[in-house]
Write a protein that binds this DNA or RNA. Structure first.
Lengths: 153, 153
DNA sequence: GTATTACATGCAACAATGTTGCATGTAATG
DNA sequence: CATTACATGCAACATTGTTGCATGTAATAC
């Protein structure tokens, strides 16, 4: 285990997670530790459903998971955002250098394309605001839908 | 009532709407006409719920409304997009010069702020794609949440 | 004007997702 | 080890969206 400094630790031991939870002002319960551990090791944002599935047999109560996730977000340990299909997805806060790609959603067929273009320049933030994530969402009609011309005026 | 030319007609007569529906390849039923009329006159994107409410007593069946809206989108007469609270909102296609403002969502409290900044330059679209709408979504922590520091690492 | 028929509608039932209240369990504290 | 406030699990409910099927009706042909 080299590199005992810096942010991007990958495997985080349970006691350390428990401490993080406690210093955020709550009890270090198995539920919170397990969810936090999952989010810590997940390479991509997880949905409520993903987490339930990942916890397997000994899954938490659905309601408890909702509450754990809400608490994680409220306490600033995690962030939640809607994906392109409007499903909430959760990530560890600060873990985020998601290469902010650009999404194009077709108004005809609903498909989502990931465009490979440079990220737009972030605007100046108002006093006191901190910017963590940036996403450009485009919509219109994709080549397929334009070609088949389904109902275009 | 001057100005008998140009796009931005506001009140559209039912027969005209019926024609538009028929030329999109479907039957001009009361349900479709009423919904299309609503969308035509609405100054802002409407949710499923808005439309049900606006239709009042003689509202359509919930399922029918879903199907009408889906058809409108599939046929290209309308577009649907998720608002910042993940609710589907529908607008007439082509009606759209929504001043594309920029949204900032706070990861702490969930509030959404509308920033007043210039819209980003649209990227080059792939062959055959047409761009209708563009939206920049930012997230992070707002001034309030940063100040009260609820749980920030 | 009437008959035909494919397309639309309404209803019932269901599925997925999210919320609330309350009794019980347990992590933290002394 | 006892206490207790906080967390959990359960049941019930709310909202949003989907599917199958019987019935109604817009468009077309007659």
């Amino acid at each position: 285990m080299p590199d005992s400094s810096s942010p991007p630790l990958i495997a985080t031991a349970a006691p350390e997670l428990a401490d993080r939870i406690r210093s955020a002002g709550a009890r270090a319960t198995p539920a919170r530790i397990r969810v936090l551990a999952l989010l810590t090791s997940a390479p991509v944002p997880l949905s409520h459903h993903d987490i339930e599935a990942a916890l397997g047999d000994a899954s938490l109560d659905r309601v408890t998971l909702y509450r754990v996730l809400d608490w994680l977000v409220a306490s600033g340990l995690a962030v939640k955002r809607a994906d392109e299909r409007r499903v909430w997805r959760f990530t560890l806060a600060g873990g985020g250098q998601h290469h902010s790609h650009i999404h194009f959603r077709c108004d005809g067929c609903g498909r989502v394309y990931c465009l490979d273009a440079p990220a737009p320049v972030p605007p100046v933030m108002p006093q006191g605001f901190t910017l963590a994530h940036l996403e450009l969402d485009l919509s219109g009609r994709c080549a397929d839908c334009n070609r088949s011309g389904s109902g275009v005026r």
